[in-house]
Design a protein around this nucleic acid. Structure first.
Lengths: 254, 254
DNA sequence: ACATCTTCGAACAGAAACGAACTTTTGGCG
DNA sequence: CGCCAAAAGTTCGTTTCTGTTCGAAGATGT
């Protein structure tokens, strides 16, 4: 089978929103319900999506996973903008480590056209996305898979990442506090992120505006370990000062 | 093949716009539809673009992936039966290593209801499937991701797997020859499979009937390293004798 | 459990796209 | 100028896609 653009976009729609009704899809593409059903059946048979009475959704869907997908569609536009800005800044043929997070997944999608990348990641979704880029060597870190977001964490993951040293370490986080500390919720994920920072020549942080002043439990790092911050809106006080003191260049995506 | 200027520009057009209709291309170049089709066919055969009914688009390996998915639907019923048989045989709360293959993915789906499993895999798809089982610890092996089937292969993968010793090693293969040798196509995958065999207390082989007498390049192992064979039809001669000699118990799924 | 409203899927028909075979044009080259 | 080969155009039977219709299957509310 060779899927046509409509079918590919259908897939994208479903992946973006988690689930879409047949009717909405028919409307979107200006075709009849029956045609959408045919497309959906085709893609479902290929295992690329799952169907339910009235529509289609992403194939994997525990409750947790859906929650994650929904979080993914939160601030979707902001994430997209950040992702594009990051992708523009990434040179061709460089090596990177990319960690867990909905923003980093958006970035991975934007990197599909880059040539000669070598990407190490502890995020199954990032690995799956980038494995579609024939001109990108994807290395996935070993370790325990967390079902919530398909992140790979744990001691083994840390050991695995230690083997490398890359040009760019790209991390997403849960929160930045007013003292300049970067924080996350899961202790084991923090360990991985710290290792990524240590093994990157340059550290890029991707965080949309909702992350500023958002509290999280575990301290991961401090702003002065970061080289570039990518975000979607000018940071609120006191962050401009903090960023300047820490020598972080701030890239606000428009 | 030596593409003419029009064909080169056609390629460029497709890459720029993602996908273009045959008609638009014909218009663009002032030639007939048939000529465009000839060009498109040529470029598609060379793998430089993918075609769909009505036009052409970039050969995103989502497409290759779909080809893989379709292979998955080949002998689907047989694989499903094998998968169910394997799942019935897997005790609760055991540890396993599962390798690459469409059959092993079907098995992963059947294991979604098992409790207390600990699964190590070098297959991103298996990892993704089983991560939906909240009561299953999934460990993914680190290494290079092969875009064709999202298998993880290479030296790092071998090293990673060496850390473990599990109850059951579950492998799928490309072919079993009449001398009892198990074979596959990719050298690096074979290395991984060998390591899995070494680090499993018991080796289970899943192979549908199409695998018997199917030639493949690289020798992976021999039947006498296998403890149980799961298949969907009684093996043809001379395999019954071979299996008996090798002490392999054969489980034919009905 | 029943009635009702949706959604689904099979079957058919018209339209569009395809591919094979054949013809025409184009551009050397003796 | 005439010949030849390669590229492009033409024609036509075949395949693929899409919309339509209608009975079956699935959801929903009482």
């Amino acid at each position: 089978m060779s899927p046509n653009p409509r079918q590919l976009e259908l897939l994208e729609q479903v992946r973006e929103r988690g689930s879409v009704s047949v009717e909405a899809l028919a409307e979107r593409f200006g075709v009849t319900l029956q045609t959408v059903r045919r497309d959906v059946k085709l893609l479902a048979d290929a295992g690329l999506l799952a169907r339910f009475h009235g529509g289609a959704r992403v194939p994997s869907s525990t409750t947790e996973n859906i929650a994650y997908r929904q979080r993914q569609s939160l601030n979707e536009a902001a994430k997209q903008r950040i992702a594009r800005a990051v992708a523009r800044a990434v040179p061709e043929a460089c090596s990177m480590i990319i960690n867990i997070g909905t923003t980093t997944e958006a970035i991975a999608r934007e990197l599909l056209q880059h040539k000669g990348l070598r990407v190490i990641t502890n995020n199954l979704n990032v690995a799956a996305i980038l494995s579609d880029n024939a001109d990108c060597e994807v290395i996935v870190a070993g370790g325990v898979v967390r079902s919530r977001d398909r992140g790979i964490i744990g001691e083994a993951t840390v050991d695995f990442i230690r083997q490398f040293k890359v040009d760019i370490g790209l991390i997403g986080i849960s929160g930045i506090e007013a003292d300049g500390s970067l924080r996350d919720f899961d202790y084991r994920e923090v360990k991985v992120a710290q290792t990524i920072i240590e093994h990157s020549r340059e550290v890029w942080l991707a965080a949309d505006h909702s992350k500023f002043n958002r509290p999280a439990m575990v301290e991961l790092a401090h702003l002065n370990q970061v080289d570039v911050l990518f975000t979607d809106a000018p940071p609120p006080d006191p962050f401009p000062t903090l960023l300047a003191e820490a020598g972080v260049s701030c890239n606000v995506a428009v």
